[in-house]
């Protein structure tokens, strides 16, 4: 189980990284945390000619609160989301979702950008980013473009990123008064990919009505799945049990695949159960936060 040969490129700046990428195009794989890519290399399921290690690009490592949003560089490690007080305090949903990624050692290497670009449909962060309405910052030869997380995931492990582009970072909203959140998932063992996962980021107004709602599911479709109809249904309604139950009735349209760990039916059922539990928890937190 050894990687096929490759050339190792290690740019020292974003400009150099983009330039290198532009020169080699389709023959290059970007190496961030490597926690998904390296297994693929070792199984020889990925065999790029060039491996572009972006770990030494300084512009991709940042974590700051600015203009009411939390800005994260693509190289932010999963463990930082729970450990850095500014991240944990301002966007607790990310900390909660990241805590379910793999295990300690995986979280110490795995990066936010890597998880989003790998786009495993059962992964935690893509769903969380959609629920948050994250804005992704993508750099390429043509400059920088901003993409909403919901539009980034285009199909099974397919994202809106050209071969000459790099996901440089992203920004997410921060919690304020009335903000509630929850990430819940079911997996065979702790740290395994989600059979189903639900990310919720919402806010209540002072009357206890849903002001804003973001909900996304992991593990139930070919990509992280935004529960748009449920979100629309909830906004403006009172945050109470009957409304949550009614929202569950709106939860439809995703298309889970059965596999050796869980049947389609079980994934559907868990999606619904977790949807209710996550909404409840988010509402409770929001109410405590008012």
């Amino acid at each position: 189980m050894k990687s096929a040969p490759f050339e190792y490129l290690v740019p020292a700046s974003l400009a150099e990284a983009l330039e290198t990428l532009a020169g080699h195009q389709d023959e290059t794989k970007v190496l961030a945390g490597g926690q998904s890519l390296v297994p693929l290399l070792k199984l020889r399921l990925a065999r790029p000619r060039y491996l572009l290690d972006i770990n030494r690009v300084p512009e991709l490592s940042y974590l700051e609160l600015k203009d009411g949003r939390l800005h994260l560089g693509a190289l932010t490690r999963h463990s930082a989301l729970g450990r850095e007080p500014s991240a944990r305090g301002s966007c607790p949903l990310l900390a909660e979702a990241a805590a379910r990624i793999g295990h300690t050692a995986i979280r110490n290497r795995g990066t936010v950008g890597g998880s989003l670009c790998h786009a495993d449909p059962a992964a935690e962060l893509p769903a969380a980013m959609i629920a948050l309405g994250a804005e992704l910052k993508i750099d390429g030869p043509g400059g920088t473009r901003l993409v909403p997380a919901a539009g980034f995931f285009q199909g099974f492990m397919t994202v809106d990123l050209q071969p000459d582009e790099i996901l440089a970072g992203l920004s997410v909203p921060v919690a304020g008064p009335g903000t509630g959140w929850s990430y819940l998932e079911v997996s065979r063992r702790h740290g395994d990919f989600a059979i189903a996962g639900v990310a919720v980021w919402l806010s209540l107004d002072d009357k206890g009505l849903f002001r804003q709602v973001g909900i996304a599911l992991a593990g139930v479709d070919d990509r992280p799945w935004k529960a748009r109809a449920c979100e629309d249904f909830l906004v403006g309604k009172e945050a109470k049990e009957e409304v949550i139950a009614a929202a569950r009735e709106q939860l439809a349209g995703f298309d889970p695949t059965g596999d050796i760990h869980a049947s389609r039916e079980y994934r559907e059922l868990m999606a619904g159960e977790l949807f209710v539990q996550a909404l409840r928890q988010a509402v409770e937190r929001a109410a405590n936060n008012l």
Partner: peptide
């Protein structure tokens, strides 16, 4: 493949799987 942790070492103080680096 990073699934068992037997190869864990500390990298700049943090545990990482040395088979995935």
């Amino acid at each position: 493949l990073g699934q068992c942790g037997a190869c864990t070492v500390l990298l700049n103080g943090d545990p990482v799987k040395s088979c995935l680096l």
